[in-house]
Structures are given as C-alpha cells and as structure tokens.
Design a protein around this nucleic acid. Structure first.
Lengths: 229, 229
DNA sequence: TATTGTTAGATTGTCGACAATCTGCTTGTC
DNA sequence: GACAAGCAGATTGTCGACAATCTAACAATA
C-alpha cells in the first residue's frame, strides 16, 4: 500500500481567512505603509464582525507587518531605509546558516524541488506577473530554510520573508517596471547543486547585494518624503 | 533646561495586562507544556471577558509560546529535545552576529550597563531567586542585541529569549536545585570589555554549551515521558 | 492672540449572548 | 460483545451592543 501523507485540513475559521486576506493586501502593497486600518469599515467590507477581524490584526501585529497603538488604531508598518538594511544584513547571516545546515542533507528530492521552484520563477517572469515573481523568488530562497530542519530558523525566516516581500513589492510598485533580469537565480541554483559549500554561501551574500542597492534607493526616497511631513 | 525624554505611557488595555500575566505564567513554568488554556475559566479568574483574553492568546500564539488548534483549544507549546537544540544552534549564530555589530559601538555607557546587569545576576544568585536568576542572565546576554542597533535582530532575539527562558525554567523546576555556578558570566563580561572580537565570539559559543548539556538531558527526559503516552 | 476648557463625533476596547464544532457517552442494531 | 448513529455537555468561534478613549473643532478666558 502506498504511503499517503495527508496535509493538514484547511483552516475553517473566519479569522484565518481574514489573516490571509490582510496579509496578502499588505505584502502586495495594496495597503500602503503607515495606512490606518479602520475596523468598522473593513469588517463591513468583509461581511464579518469585528471580533475575528481584531484577532486577525493581533496576529499580524505580532508577525511584524502591522503596528498597534491603544485607542488610536492599527497601522501598516512604516518602511525606513534602516529597516531594509537591518532585514538584509540579518538575512545574509541566516542564509549562510541555512545553507550550512542544508548542505549535508541535500538529496535528489532537494534538487528536484529546487528545479521546480526555479521553474516557477522563470514562468512568472515570462508571464510578467511581478507580484508572483517576487513570491516565487522568495520561495526559491526559502527552500534551504525548509530543508535545514531547524524549526526556529524556519520561523524566523518566514517572519523576515514577510517584510522582504513587502519591501520588494513597494519597490517594484514605485518603479513600475519589471523586476531584475531573468538569469539571476541560475548561479544560485547551480552552486546549491555543486560541491563547494563556501562558494554557495558566498554567492548567497553577493546575490542578495544586487537587488539590495535598488531597494535602498527606494527606501531613501521614502525617507525624504517622510521628512517633509 | 534639562532635556527630559519621557518614555511611552504604560499600556492601559486589559489585553496588554493579560498578555503580561499569561507570558509570565508560561515562562516561569506555572503553566506546563502541553497544558490547555480554558478560556472561560481563565476569563473568570481574571474577571475579564473572553474578547481581550482571546486577543491576548492570539499574540502569544504568534510569539511562539502558545499553539492553537481551531475548535479544539489553545495550548502551551510542547518542548522537545529538538526544539531546544534548534533554539540553541540559532542562538549561537545570532550571538556571534550581535557581538560583531555591537563591537565597534561599545562605549562607557555600554560598559556601565554591562556591569549593572552583571551585578543584577549576582544579586539574584545570592538571593537564591532562581526565576529572577534566569531572567537577569538573559538580560545580561540581551545587551549586545540591544546595542547592535538592528531592530529585526533584536526582535528575533526577544522571540528566542521567551523560549530559552521557558526551557531554563522547566529545567530548573525539574531538577529543583540552584542554577549553574556563580562565576560563569565573569569571563563573558571581561571579554566584551576586551579588545579581541574573535575571542569574545568564540567564548559566547562555548559558554552557551555549558548549560546546554544540562538542558538537553532534561529534554531527553521529556521525550521519554512523552513516548509512553 | 494665545492658551485652556468643553463638547460632539468617530473609533477602539470590552462585554454578554448565541452559533458552530468537538468529545465522550449512550443507545440501538447486528 | 463489536460497532455505528445519535444525543448531551462542554468549549471555541462569532456576533451585535455598550463603554472608554481619542481627536478636532469650537468657546471661554486671561
């Protein structure tokens, strides 16, 4: 008999769906940084009472993409240049660690999954679906975290990913032009398949630095605009 | 006129107080791993309605010390040996990074604060207040994170700290004996004051490994007990 | 005029009640 | 006795209403 492992059943609470909806709205930039979330308005739009909506917002606050001030409101986090720098510098450290943990565990299933995700990025790129392009690229990079078999590291990465996705989406939205060249991930994938751990780790750093410069430029623009208020 | 900077006003919502109460109960081990939190019972004990309690629980779920299953309940996280290993190995990496970031920023205020926190640990040790001993020791180690001036790193550390504190509390509670020797932190503090970055980073690793072995032994005990059910 | 009180409106925080779901037991059937 | 169906109690999820608090505009006062 074939061994079937069923995934967990879908979360059927309103709360979970609201979380997903809000997260998506924030990470795609539909909700802008600093914007206030009016509970009554949103709950009416979603045809839901405020209770599950508020619980959902509490989760997103802890997730780090919303911020809440008692009796004042809940807002989408502001994005500063420093936040982006901080997130990226931590990301480098974590990437190195994740690759190191994953390295001895690589097997055929890993390589297959790597190819699958790489393919997804290329497809999104061809379709010029920028949102999906960001999503798939992050999923490609997330593989080493999933493979590292360290639950706390994975959790940390997922939190970080939320922000990175938000940053990229904002950046992309501001420039309104397609994201980086097509072949960027080629070397990354190749190195992960190779035999040189150090090289892979080193490239992870460099590769990150490519888009980093662009993001920073965008962030500095934000800074300037904010200081005018 | 002296420049006074007022800190933010105290959170006056019931939710915030509930979060603090519950967190403390969990981190000190008053609420045991795996234990279910009955909303009605707790809300009655606290003389609060279920709404703010549920919101508080949502926060602690995202914080990683509670886990929730729809329509089944919310439970204190289970502690497995692997969780402890994972948390510690990530902690090592983060410690190295935090020390590196802090290094060039050390000044007199840093050293003073270092001494102050070190003193707090020693005082708790003398008073044989084991809970406070754990708390102060973690605060001592947290200084480099606060000084590193990287908000995402600090956030990550704080999440990790919750778990570490819980693990130590459980370990201490199980053994029912005073925690490690008195002079453990002496070298750590001295190295942070010194001029050798590499030595400080290296010691942070070794130092951590000391208590690590003890914790692991406790965790393995947990594993055995769990497998009997 | 500048500052301080007051008030109305809007929004968040909290409450108590109801609906949906789960668990364990009982009942009925073979 | 084994097993499925169904019922009762307990618990979680959701709702609508009320209380507490904030904001901004306006009035009062020096």
């Amino acid at each position: 008999m074939a061994k079937l492992d069923f995934g967990p059943i879908a979360d059927t609470t309103r709360r979970a769906e609201i979380v997903a909806l809000l997260r998506r709205a924030i990470l795609t930039g539909q909700l802008e940084p600093g914007q206030k979330l009016n509970e009554l308005r949103i709950s009416e739009q979603m045809r839901v009472s405020r209770a599950p909506l508020r619980e959902a917002m509490r989760e997103l606050v802890q997730e780090g993409i919303l911020t809440s001030i008692p009796y004042a409101g809940t807002f989408v986090i502001d994005v500063t240049a420093k936040d982006i720098i901080d997130a990226y510098s931590l990301n480098k450290v974590l990437d190195e660690f994740a690759i190191e943990l994953t390295w001895p565990q690589r097997d055929q299933r890993f390589f297959d999954e790597l190819d699958r995700r790489h393919e997804a990025v290329k497809q999104a790129t061809r379709a010029v679906d920028t949102t999906r392009q960001i999503e798939t690229a992050l999923q490609l990079h997330g593989l080493v975290y999933e493979w590292a078999d360290n639950s706390v590291l994975l959790e940390t990465w997922q939190r970080l990913t939320s922000r990175l996705q938000m940053y990229f989406a904002l950046h992309q939205r501001a420039l309104n032009e397609p994201v980086p060249a097509e072949g960027v991930h080629e070397t990354y994938v190749a190195l992960l398949k190779g035999a040189d751990l150090r090289a892979a780790q080193h490239h992870a750093r460099e590769h990150i630095d490519v888009d980093f410069e662009e993001l920073l430029a965008y962030a500095r623009g934000l800074e300037k605009r904010a200081s005018k208020n």
